[in-house]
Computed example of a mutant assay.
Amino acid sequence: MAAETAKTQYIDAANGVKFAYRFLGKPSETPLVLHCHFRSNMDYWDPLLLNALAAQRRVIIFDQAGVGRSSGVAASTFQGWADNVISLIEALGIKKIDLFGFSMGGCAAQMIALTAPTLIRKLILGGTAASMPGENSNISGIVWPREDPTPEEITMLATKTDPADTEEALTFSFFPHTDFGRAAAKAYWKRVLERNVPEEPVMLRLLNEEATKNQTASYADFVTPNPRNSYDRLGELEMPVLVMNGDNDLLVMPSLSWELLVRIPNAQLIIYPKAGHGFLYQYAELVAHNVNMFLDGAGEGAQVPKL
């Protein structure tokens, strides 16, 4: 089933949430689950990326609790996001997954992998960051102090509420402010609008104010030093991890991807040129190719000693 025509399915999880999700592609032994970004729902995934991934494996996309077509309340910590995903996977009866977390979805993916490590075969972290190091954390080998994102991109993404403004917000926040970036954004948005399920119009509105506040609180918790969050625990991740980002990401600075590479024992890193936070939409087919190679075993055996 292609991304443009895949129908939404629903399942009741043990945590009381009715999750909306879609299956794409052919059945595979280990499905790839994708977790999307701040204020988004699963309609924002690029069909070109999804279809290229689904050509090789089963792909599952979904809406978090309190997001898009799912019921419930948006969690206010990434541990809460993680618990929701684990409940969904358990409800689907799946014992092992590959997991791709993008942006804030990558923060949640770290917590999923730390909470239920035997559930995750391989982990992909795109355009995301670890939690904030604490006073006693080991910061050797990373860029410190951390580089700050530019506030204009965050403000644009966090405050737009009119569906007519969604394309503008994503173009400004996710893509380079160049002719190349604007063209890539326009092409991405055109592909999003090609979804064609008559009874399921594309949900163009970014997340509502209440749920946005909860998601913002999740990130605030993540950047408050706390040993239960991910930074001091990244060494616990024993599965292969692929870290990805654009070289001109203004929301999650590329140095934070380097940080993940340094701190995760079995990680590798790909940086895409002339690309912003939305690198996976600028280079949808290439990113899918790299992800499929990683999931099929390319580049394994590069484990480095723990710091």
Rank of each mutant, 00 (worst) to 15 (best):
G141Y: 10
A3Q: 06
A288I: 05
I264G: 05
V73C: 11
F38C: 03
E135C: 13
D63C: 03
E29R: 12
E147H: 13
H289D: 15
L88Q: 02
A14V: 15
A220V: 10
A183F: 04
P198K: 11
P163I: 05
P176Q: 00
L204T: 05
G181H: 01
L295C: 00
L32P: 04
E135A: 15
R263T: 07
I270F: 00
L24F: 09
I271G: 05
F279L: 09
K96R: 14
P201R: 10
F174T: 02
V243Y: 09
D165G: 12
L99Y: 00
V262C: 15
L157S: 03
A164W: 06
V262I: 13
A14T: 15
H289V: 13
F102M: 11
F174E: 00
F100V: 02
S28Q: 05
I61N: 08
F222N: 02
T5I: 06
K18L: 11
D43G: 07
A20S: 02
L295G: 01
P27C: 04
K122A: 01
R263K: 03
N136L: 12
L49C: 07
E29A: 11
F38L: 13
I139W: 13
M156P: 08
V291M: 06
M239D: 02
G101Y: 02
Y272Q: 00
L307N: 11
G297L: 09
W81A: 04
E210A: 15
V304R: 15
S131T: 06
N41M: 08
L92F: 10
T178E: 12
P176M: 08
Q79K: 08
E168I: 08
W45I: 07
S76Q: 01
E209G: 11
I89H: 00
